[in-house]
Design a protein around this nucleic acid. Structure first.
Lengths: 318, 318
DNA sequence: TGAGGGCATAAGCTGGGGTTATGAGCAGCG
DNA sequence: CGCTGCTCATAACCCCAGCTTATGCCCTCA
């Protein structure tokens, strides 16, 4: 423990800010409560909706205000309305709660494995970024559909479908595995990104295919959908600088300045918006790829599978 | 209680699922812990990083696994690695934690009001959707910059800047208030959306400007940036079906099927992706608008203001 | 074979969040 | 004009989730 003590003083380098997040952000229950208050205009009403007592709600909101150092609701003898700051906080809180809903829907699908009526197999990128949203939507419309989820690469997805261990699959590879029918549900594109400090970040002239092929890149492992597409586009030439097994690890390496990386734009929303990574324009190579729903040839999706499929269509191009 | 029971049937309805979210989703502390375990490959290491004891970390992860009904980490005598399911869960968890970081950065800015070195005034849409991300990035680069935030419409932003109550402003209106210099930092667009059940959702032919002007719409109140742009584009003709004072309320009404709504595409990411709302193509009207940073004429942003400004540039068009 | 890192178990404390019971401010109505 | 009904606040009490320290086992490596 003494070693622990001695370290504590240093306050964990740059990460000290993130460390106490949980102490500075109200917990999910409190945020849900705040949303309910916003919607219903009354502490007591919100309490009833969440199945707790009115004093509990009152004290919880109060302690949230103390924690944030900001008045969130105007209490009056005939109801409670959000303050200006409260409205803003509530909007930010909603993002957390929505992320939590997606988490919940996903986690439920990982658990339900046994008796589920709809068994889904999906590639990692889709399972990470798209599926939770679909599951939330599905649950909203058909709350009683138990879904199970298995994530793996294209080969695994195909295998599970053909072994009747899954009813519906999603793949992101460049080709559709044999024995499966498919429908395109969205378009994705791989993009080249670097840390803002990298020389390429300031390039104006688009990168040529050859340059990309000749430069060592941070990449997903061979066999991943992302890698397949890139190799195909470059003619199998992609040179790995580092090879890692998750999108997250690729991003971490790129943000850390290890070098240029190639990633699905699906995975890069936040990083691009916050400029932790910047996109490098590319010329002469098309890294577009289709995201597809797949199912065993002949077995048109029906029932819950068909319903989920209908939710995934027409991903808008913003 | 009994009275509570009887009422519950009424409006809770679809929302019943959301009620217990906090019981089904691990709290932020647990999620942070999971991320640390993923990054460090060891429970004890993660515990040290978060400043808690190793048994605390162990038990916390265990109870998280119990709660989710899924094994998340493979413990071995020489470290812990995520299981496949654990990797997926961790990725979903990261979204929650990121939303929480944005929340925290925003909340901090609402609190710091007093002694802050950088005072920001922003329009609602920007404060809601863009600013928290910028603040997170700013904090990552300059952890000691205390920022304060005041949200209001363009007029309020201008007033605060001119009264030297703010150092930097952000507006979304159609024109730049007098006395201010500005720089375009991003492009936004208003779009027409309806619930998927609305007849317009199935339209193939784009909507003409006249049709839009003649149809009663769910709108933000007069004076809001959104409304200004729409009125300008239609020649002051927009007919309100319902007028509400927050983006959220507009979305809620639209999702509920009250009618078509006009909203910033910034506000609609989730809703479009999950198809709670669908976009109606529009023809002959340009609802594009610039988002601008503004400051008192002559007072070029310097110091922290300049730095924040540099983070906001070049919002990528996806 | 002993040192060290990693995880688990056990026993005990603390506090946040819950409950019930009660009071007080304000609106609307017979 | 005072009752009824809605709101929120305060007080006193309880419980358990999550923390701590102390310990032990397992495995690896020098």
């Amino acid at each position: 423990m003494s070693s622990g003590e001695s370290r504590t003083g240093g306050d964990a380098s740059g990460r000290s800010h993130a460390a106490g997040l949980a102490h500075r952000v109200p917990d999910l229950g409190a945020l849900e409560l705040l949303l309910a208050v916003a919607r219903l205009g009354s502490l007591g009403g919100a309490a009833r909706e969440l199945g707790i007592s009115q004093p509990a709600a009152s004290s919880r909101v109060r302690s949230m205000e103390r924690q944030l150092g900001v008045a969130l609701v105007d209490r009056s003898p005939r109801g409670s309305r959000l303050t200006d700051a409260g409205a803003l906080v509530t909007d930010w809180a909603r993002r957390i709660v929505e992320a939590a809903e997606a988490f919940d829907a996903g986690a439920q699908a990982l658990r339900d494995r046994r008796d589920s009526r709809l068994r889904v197999a999906a590639s990692m990128t889709i399972a990470e970024y798209l599926l939770p949203g679909w599951l939330v939507a599905l649950r909203a419309q058909r709350p009683d559909t138990a879904v199970s989820l298995h994530a793996g690469n294209s080969a695994v997805v195909a295998q599970r479908l053909l072994a009747d261990e899954a009813d519906l699959g999603f793949v992101e590879g460049v080709s559709v595995p044999a024995g499966l029918d498919s429908a395109v549900i969205a378009h994705d594109r791989l993009i080249v990104v670097t840390a803002p400090t990298h020389p390429w970040a300031r390039r104006r002239r688009p990168l040529a295919a050859r340059e990309l092929a000749e430069t060592p890149l941070i990449l997903r492992e061979k066999g991943s959908g992302t890698r397949q597409v890139l190799d195909a586009a470059l003619g199998g030439l992609a040179r790995p600088l580092i090879e890692v097994s998750s999108t997250t690890a690729v991003k971490a390496a790129a943000v850390g300045g290890a070098g240029p990386a190639v990633l699905s734009e699906l995975a890069l929303g936040e990083e691009l918006a916050m400029r932790r990574l910047v996109r490098v324009p590319l010329d002469g190579v098309s890294l577009a790829r289709d995201l597809r729903a797949v199912w065993p040839t002949g077995h048109q999706p029906a029932g819950p599978a068909r319903h989920l499929l209908s939710l995934t269509r027409a991903q808008p191009r913003t």
